[in-house]
Write a protein that binds this DNA or RNA. Structure first.
Lengths: 192, 192
DNA sequence: TTAATCATGTAACACGTTACATGATTGC
DNA sequence: GCAATCATGTAACGTGTTACATGATTAA
């Protein structure tokens, strides 16, 4: 998957490993994380597979650039992948894993947890501005037929964030109700 | 994370690797996938760490059971993990990765893709019934203070699924509009 | 009789994370 | 003078996936 993501970026114009890293960091961070170590490893593999070719560009006062370009066979592979209906839908969600076992802690502690989580934002501006770095933004201007899909992924991020906030509110209310019930039970015990 | 999930399950009662596998498959599948190969590996590690102990139970006509129980130090670790604010929030979403590069294909193909995705359901009953297997269900009866949190994770799954469907609808409308604009452009060109 | 369930795992590979290593240039 | 940016990566480890291997019992 990461492999094909990198291939897609190179398809939109030859790039160095460093440039690919910045696109992941600035424009795809809301649905995929990638470290340089992984990017350089995938680039090696893809070169071996013949999907991309490497051109060394000497620079003055800096290390040489390794610019990667897509090959015809790489472009074929990109289309094959896009058309492949096989789609892993699973996602391992560490937050839900914790939630599942929160019964071990008192509700007060868990309430604090949900309140903190509710206030976390992936899109600092509320998702109003496009989450694209300068280079991607320029590309979006030239290729609106591609940028449509980029906007769709940003919209997903925005909707996901909203849903997550709503879920947190729901959890907070559920736990507050639970606390109230427990308190009134205590009162009854006192009276009897 | 998987490690601590398994620890949490064993904390709710001693279990074999097989039983742990069934709980993941039947009750946690909407937020975490785990194969037996991984489960047995984690069990080894956790035994080495002293979080759990293993008891061999001979059976007639079947392989021996390896029943794992939590140790005091394992329970401490469970609480430490639950209280640890460090929370990886990232999720690598293969569906969004594909969406991002769909500009390479004609809108018709992508529309088919989104329509198929919209109709996929993780909760076959629409999420009305609790996604808990028999054993978990029994436990939920005895421990409502734990089951609250189990229900919260199921509610998340339900909300996520709804959001995903709504996003697909949004994508479908966006692409249909795009197609209409492209068609009227063609008409204009014909006329001039 | 065929599939599902109970019950154990291993081996190899693929993918992701963390930490380390180097070094000039540019802007505050 | 210091931090950030540009630019390259490696090593070790941790986690997840796929395929394989075995074999009795039970329900349709």
């Amino acid at each position: 998957m990461l492999r094909h993501g990198i291939l897609g970026l190179i398809n939109n114009g030859a790039k160095t490993g460093y440039e690919i890293m910045t696109v992941f960091r600035d424009s795809l961070h809301h649905f995929w994380a990638a470290q340089t170590s992984q990017i350089y490893r995938e680039l090696r593999t893809m070169e071996r597979l013949g999907w991309i070719t490497q051109t060394r560009v000497p620079q003055s006062g800096r290390p040489d650039k390794n610019v990667f370009s897509i090959t015809p066979s790489g472009h074929e592979e990109l289309l094959r992948w896009l058309r492949d209906p096989d789609m892993p839908l699973k996602f391992n969600n560490p937050f839900l894993m914790k939630t599942f076992f929160m019964g071990e802690l008192p509700p007060e502690e868990n309430l604090a947890f949900f309140r903190a989580f509710r206030d976390i934002a992936v899109f600092p501006d509320g998702g109003k501005q496009a989450a694209l770095n300068a280079d991607m933004y320029r590309q979006a201007m030239d290729h609106p037929e591609k940028a449509i899909y980029w906007k769709l992924t940003i919209e997903f991020g925005r909707m996901y964030e909203k849903m997550q906030r709503e879920w947190c509110e729901y959890c907070i209310h559920t736990l507050e109700d639970f606390q109230r019930i427990m308190e009134s039970k205590k009162e009854e015990e006192k009276e009897s």
